[in-house]
Amino acid sequence: MSDDQTPVFQIQRIYLKEASLEQPNSPAIFLEQQQPSVDIQLGVEAKGVADGVYEVAVAATVHTKIGERTVFLVECKQAGIFEIRNLPQEQMGPIMGIACPQIIYPYLRANVADVITRAGFPPVHLAEINFQAMYEQQQAQQQDDAPRIVTA
């Protein structure tokens, strides 16, 4: 194998791409004694930015409410730039859907907890995620949604 065909997987940069915090009912919400409900949504996206260079981002939305009133809403997107070259095409999906998010996610968890703490609330620690199971579920969903060709 020649050197120019050697597989390459390198982290170029990990960065906080986006972070927002809303606490529309402060300061009154700080006086509430009731436990809030917490809704957490996660997503992964990947796109090419140059030849052999990809951006992968993991986004989290944490929405806490007491009844219908928002305690706080945090949206955070952690991203990474990865150089990925000379890998078989069938490995690209798992690399960008499993390996890269696993590298990025600890940074996202820390940033979400930090933003919430700095807002004056106890931190919300995002649970560990099985990105392989998440990826496989997305692949199965895409296959289920694929148009079917029916012949008579």
Results as ranks from 00 to 15, higher is better:
Gly48Trp: 11
Thr117Tyr: 10
Pro122Ile: 03
Asn130His: 07
Ala28Ser: 15
Ala127Gln: 14
Thr6Lys: 15
Glu128Leu: 04
Asn111Trp: 01
Pro27Tyr: 03
Val49Phe: 09
Asp39His: 14
Ala60Arg: 00
Met134His: 02
Val38Pro: 06
Gln138Gly: 02
Pro106Cys: 00
Lys77Arg: 13
Glu45Phe: 08
Val56Ile: 12
Ile103Leu: 14
Ser26Trp: 03
Phe30Asp: 05
Glu32Asp: 15
Ala50Ile: 04
Thr70His: 05
Glu75Pro: 01
Ala152Pro: 15
Val74Trp: 02
Leu42Phe: 00
Glu75Ile: 09
Ile129Asp: 05
Gln35Ser: 14
Ile29Thr: 01
Pro36Ile: 00
Glu32Gln: 14
Gln137Met: 11
Lys77Gln: 10
Glu90Tyr: 07
Leu42Gly: 05
Gln12Trp: 06
Glu32Phe: 14
Gln91His: 15
Val56Leu: 06
Leu126His: 05
Val58Ala: 10
Ala60Asn: 09
Gln102Ile: 01
Gln132Lys: 12
Ala146Asn: 07
Ile98Asn: 05
Asp144Thr: 13
Met92Ala: 12
Val8Phe: 10
Thr70Leu: 08
Gln91Thr: 13
Tyr107Val: 04
Phe9Val: 00
Gln139Lys: 09
Glu22Leu: 07
Thr64Asn: 06
His125Leu: 15
Gln33His: 11
Thr64Tyr: 09
Glu75Asp: 04
Met92Gly: 11
Glu83Arg: 15
Ala57Gln: 09
Glu136Lys: 00
Ile14Trp: 06
